[in-house]
Design a protein around this nucleic acid. Structure first.
Lengths: 226, 226, 226, 226
DNA sequence: ACTTAACCGAGACGGTACGTCGTGTCTTGCC
DNA sequence: GGCAAGACACGACGTACCGTCTCGGTTAAGT
């Protein structure tokens, strides 16, 4: 029912047979023969993955061996459903990606962005931040992993961000024709940078400072020009 | 200055003995007993480390075994001088961190920053970018590694950046009392973000776009206010 | 009987689980879960161990690395089943300790002993002698190893030897109340000594000479006394 | 002056120059130029070798590294004078071979042999026994080592033993034409066997038992025949 | 006193094997 | 046919010693 893991871009995966629609199986709900996949195992594995990522080290330090042991599950079961460690982590991460990060709509771009950015920072500083860091770290040598981060974390939020910014344009808070991606990277880039390099403190007020620099600048400019 | 590897934060390390010219030496001019460290091996190891980092995958994929083999060196020699893979990579990276990234002084903050940021982007896009990515990735689970990145790469540049920005303040291009760290993170954060997440294209013109957004905003604001 | 490796003197060992036929099994007929041990690997390892012992040097020169490589087996598999090199060699040796050394029953102690001692000498002089030497050499710093030699090689033969000697007593060839262990050590000791120290030639006729000295003496004495 | 290590059968060794007699150096006691060998180091090394052999394991467990460290001596110094571990151990052993094992001359073969065999057993049971065991063990894969044992331990004693036995022949205690080597191996073989295999207790009274079996037999026989 | 030459300690060097851990695959019997 | 259990071949880990080497420093004998 719920498709729970990365499609692996072409890599055949037997769980894909449960996608319905294909073959004589199209309309009727006929299940394939044999014992069905254990939902309990699946969740246990994802739970253990997150747990271990939060505890130990990063992506490299996480071992499938440990996940299987912690989840009381055979290693085979992990490998059966997730072709790589990357896929597993991506799946686990996305299972934990919550709705906390939805954008508000207060009537002010500055407030909307600032509030959401504060929530991002709060998550980065929490235990879940380690999972994000692991994902970004692992993604540096595994394209699938960073792709998973983009698809499951970045893009969903960014779509909402576009809307938020566009509302601001409509309201005249931002200049027409603004490069939305440039604005968003300028807003979030500094957060990621401090999160990953840890060269300076990353607390929630940093969100306001960035907005103050980037958005206020845009506002003035637009005023001055129009 | 001639100190070439991670100080390991307080952990005593035998290579820390000075090998500078006798006489001018701090404590005394005596070389320690025993066969001196092989400079040839040291360089060969660092060279192989960089080479393999550029070739293969990231930090996790690099094996000390392979480095030793490629450098025609005993594994022991690597472990004798670098306590962890992290230290080795940090050292190798810092040996390659060259003067290419010095800040120019054109008389315009915007131009100075933009030119240097372009060079950073050029490096990130080159083979050496893989080394930086490996360092940042590895640093997510190894504090020493990210510290090495900060100490050897980030801070040296940032000190120059402070001077560049302060020249701008003196010239009235930036408001007095600007938060320099905020400005710099706003300028470089977007670059790091696109470099690591790869969600959008990172070419040299991006430097100009960021400067246009961040620095122009500051300029206007200062004009409007003064 | 089907028990093929060193019991490790009390240390629990997973291979000790019975793999005999179901039903007739001692405790219960259940096989433990998981993939069963590969009989092929087991034999290949023991075969390679013997082969290398016969080729190279002694016990010290034998490396587990080489055994694993020669047997086309992972090092792990060797370590899984044999805790030390000693255990492995003992097992390999005992797998090769064959029935060639059974005692005959000709009706004469002198002939029985002499014939068997000749066979011992023949083995000591053959390639298999290197294995025995390795075992005795290794046993000087590993109690388990020498124990294995005693349990698997010495005692089984000695039990038969007791019977042979006792037949001789019954027949009046040896005095009643003879110290059997003293006699046996006097018979075999010289062989071991020449085998290990190699200070004098050890050929099969030496068996007769020893018997001539030790057993003839006993006979006379018994005659003189009775 | 004192030639202290194995001649190494052809392996050139610079310490051999101190053998005197050869070249222009023949008659006069001219020392070669350069710093003379440190007698202190030599003894310290031999002492440490024995100490470690008595403590730890056997020949295989002894490391030159440990010897040098224990003797406060550079590894080079060990290797300069002893080409192999075998040579070192043989030398150390022979330096410790004391005069305790001389044969007495009581006027009775039986008593002479028995007394000396008791002393051998006493040594085998003492700490020094570990050194002998190490030598015999190592000798199984190193011909030089077992040769050293024969040359420095076995033969010197055996020469005395021949004399002892011949005195017995003269006195009529042993038959004329006895095979002395056979007799000696029959006397000592059982001791070596119990010492190395440890299958039965080896105390001093064992010497008497063996003599009782082997020598008494000879005596009777000679009486009966003459 | 100065030179020459060999020894000495210290310890780094290129290697080999160690015994362990994790990988991804496989083979069982049970469900 | 999924599942746990766990053995399998493999490869890298970090360590211990190997035997060799290169240093600065010592210790004489021969000038």
């Amino acid at each position: 029912m719920a498709q729970n893991h990365i499609p692996h871009a072409g890599a055949p995966n037997r769980s894909d047979r449960s996608n319905g629609a294909s073959g004589s199986n199209g309309t009727n709900g006929k299940r394939p023969p044999g014992r069905p996949r254990s939902e309990e195992s699946r969740q246990s594995i994802l739970r253990s993955t997150l747990k271990l990522l939060k505890q130990d080290g990063g992506f490299a330090e996480l071992s499938i061996e440990a996940v299987a042991a912690d989840a009381n599950v055979g290693k085979t079961t992990v490998y059966r459903w997730w072709p790589t460690k990357a896929a597993l982590v991506a799946d686990a991460f996305s299972a934990s990606a919550d709705d906390e990060l939805r954008f508000p709509n207060t009537g002010s771009v500055h407030t909307d962005m600032s509030l959401q950015m504060r929530r991002v920072i709060r998550i980065f500083r929490s235990k879940r931040g380690k999972v994000v860091a692991a994902l970004l770290a692992g993604g540096q040598s595994d394209p699938e992993l960073i792709e998973a981060f983009r698809d499951r974390f970045l893009w969903p939020r960014r779509k909402q961000a576009y809307q938020t910014l566009e509302r601001g344009i409509v309201r005249g808070e931002l200049p027409v024709g603004s490069d939305l991606d440039l604005i968003l990277d300028s807003l979030y880039g500094p957060i990621y940078m401090r999160f990953l390099i840890r060269h300076d403190k990353l607390d929630e007020s940093f969100a306001d400072e960035i907005c103050g620099l980037v958005l206020k600048g845009l506002k003035r400019r637009s005023h001055g020009r129009n």
